[in-house]
Simulated scan of single mutants.
Amino acid sequence: MSDEPILVGRVGAAHGIRGEVRVKAFTEPMDAIGDYGPLSLPDGRRLTIERMRTQGDMLVVKFREIADRNAAETLTNRDLTIPRSALPEPEDEETFYHTDLIGLDVVDAAGASIGTIVAVPDYGAGDLLEIRPAAGTSFYLPFTRAFVPVVDVKAGRVVADLPEGFLAEAKPEAGEDGADPSTSEGERGA
């Protein structure tokens, strides 16, 4: 397991005159951002949460190291990170940190390479795996047991069970649209 920085929040605007800032937390629940100890800025400075409160979908945070509004304004749009080692291990085999999935190889049931996980977005309907094949454009796969029955973080791979034709290439007839059928783009399955 690498100990690269994990993004847990982003500082928004200064709030008031006493050095508070608005923070968009990426933890669940959002106030869990205070459970990991000092937070790091991209420039290496560390910030300690002195107090925080919820305000809508944001937190209002007072960092011990920030004394006034002027200092708070210098933090606007800065990322807040923690080392991966600060995160507790998942409670069960079915729970994964997105950061642990990114970079894993994706193979089919026979072990043939499909690609590599490059992102784990959630656009509102559940987590997706963005997979980049060795050639061609990346595609999305629902991160469900039906599509991804095996996740083996230690082995560095996931097994994908793709429906027939999921990665089939569209092959237009020669001359149909002037395209060379050997260079057609792949279809993105649903």
Rank of each mutant, 00 (worst) to 15 (best):
A112W: 06
V120C: 10
H15V: 13
V60T: 08
P83E: 11
V118D: 12
T137V: 04
I49S: 03
M52K: 11
E130H: 06
G111H: 10
A32Q: 07
T27M: 03
R69C: 08
R46L: 01
A135H: 14
P83A: 12
V61H: 04
Q55P: 00
S40V: 01
L80C: 05
G103N: 13
I131S: 02
G44F: 04
V120H: 06
G126I: 03
T137Y: 07
Y36K: 02
A13W: 07
R10E: 15
G12A: 00
D127Q: 08
I6Q: 08
G9E: 00
V11A: 02
A71Y: 05
V60S: 08
V23I: 02
R69M: 14
P88F: 13
L101C: 12
V61A: 04
Q55V: 14
D108P: 07
E94R: 15
D68A: 11
T48P: 02
A125M: 15
F96S: 09
E65C: 03
L39P: 07
P38M: 01
G12H: 00
L87K: 06
P121M: 09
A135N: 10
G37V: 00
P121D: 13
S2Y: 12
D3T: 10
P29M: 08
E91C: 09
I33W: 06
A25H: 04
D79C: 03
G16L: 13
A13D: 13
E94Y: 15
A110C: 09
D127K: 07
V8L: 00
I82A: 01
G12F: 02
L104K: 07
I17S: 15
E20F: 06
I17D: 15
T95V: 13
G124D: 05
E73S: 15
R132L: 14
T27P: 00
G44Y: 02
E130M: 10
I33S: 03
E50Y: 09
I33D: 03
G115W: 06
D31W: 06
R69G: 02
R45C: 00
